[in-house]
Amino acid sequence: MRSAHQLLAVDLKAWTPEDWSAAATVATAFFTIATVAIALAAALYAKQQVDLARQLREEQAQPFVVVDFQDNAVWSKAIDFVVENMGQTLAKNVRIKLDQQFESTLDGDGFPLRDSPLMTQGIPSLPPRKRITALFDVSHDRYSAGLPMKYTATVEFQDSHGKDQEPLVYILDLSTRHDLLQIAEYRMHDAAKALREMSKTLKETRNDLRSEFRRRRMESSGVLSPDAGPTPQTGQGS
């Protein structure tokens, strides 16, 4: 039997049945190898897709704990420290570690955030979409006090089965909040302040009216000369 090279070098019309049989065998072997290679490539691609889909499902099912500084919902100049589980499952044993302890101009009020159980003991369990908010500082007071404007926070936690998750690192930078143009937005804090000022003004006006009423009544009764000054207030009663 001649080789494939010899077969290709001769006139096809001169091929014998044995030559055609040998050529068919070679072609069949070639197509078989190609078919097996394609099948292996398809199987490998399918496995990769399955692995990616499984990895995506696992990542979507994991807890995802985020920490950040945000504007207070009531007073825009106040800064809140926020911890939130943005994942789809329960997060356990959440621990927040900082490169330096929190400092705030509000520490003198007796409730420093750095000493709170949130920072010292962590969170035993944090359900999906659960959000914990703590007042951190007032922006203009902090800037004037020269306190640190940047912290690095590392969040360690476990999934619902108690398996340790990869720690997440966040850069909490307050300096980006300065020198930004903003539209003034009046919130509940501003409304309460305006109401207190209105109450104070009304109270002063009421006292002035009472004093003037007493003065005129005393003038009409002859007790007080018209040229006398305002009647001194003796109390808040009517």
Rank of each mutant, 00 (worst) to 15 (best):
V83C: 04
V83Y: 07
M86V: 15
G87Y: 01
G87M: 01
G87F: 00
Q88Y: 02
T89C: 05
L90V: 01
A91E: 02
N93C: 10
V94P: 04
R95N: 06
R95S: 09
I96Y: 03
K97D: 02
L98W: 10
D99Q: 06
Q101L: 08
F102L: 11
E103Q: 15
S104I: 00
T105L: 02
T105Q: 01
T105P: 03
L106K: 13
L106I: 10
L106P: 09
D107T: 05
G108V: 07
G108Q: 12
G110F: 13
G110T: 13
G110Q: 10
G110C: 08
P112T: 05
L113E: 11
D115H: 11
D115I: 02
S116T: 04
S116K: 00
P117Y: 07
P117I: 04
L118D: 03
L118H: 03
L118G: 05
L118T: 08
L118P: 05
M119K: 01
T120C: 05
Q121S: 08
G122N: 01
G122W: 01
P124S: 13
S125R: 08
S125N: 04
L126V: 00
P127E: 06
P128N: 12
P128M: 07
P128G: 10
R129C: 03
R129Y: 08
R129G: 01
K130E: 09
R131Y: 02
I132M: 07
T133D: 00
A134M: 07
A134R: 11
L135C: 08
F136M: 07
F136Q: 04
D137G: 11
D137H: 05
V138C: 09
S139M: 12
D141L: 14
D141Q: 13
Y143F: 14
Y143N: 15
Y143P: 09
S144K: 14
A145D: 03
G146C: 11
L147Y: 10
Y151P: 08
Y151D: 12
T152A: 02
A153G: 10
A153R: 12
A153V: 14
T154W: 03
T154H: 03
T154R: 12
F157Y: 15
F157L: 09
Q158N: 13
D159I: 13
S160Y: 15
S160N: 15
G162L: 08
G162Q: 14
D164L: 15
Q165Y: 00
E166C: 06
E166A: 14
V169P: 04
Y170S: 13
Y170K: 14
L172M: 03
L172Y: 00
L172V: 04
L172T: 03
D173P: 14
D173C: 11
L174W: 10
L174C: 04
T176S: 09
T176W: 05
T176E: 05
R177Y: 13
R177Q: 14
R177S: 12
H178M: 02
D179P: 05
L180C: 05
Q182D: 12
Q182C: 10
Q182E: 15
I183Y: 07
I183Q: 12
I183T: 06
A184G: 12
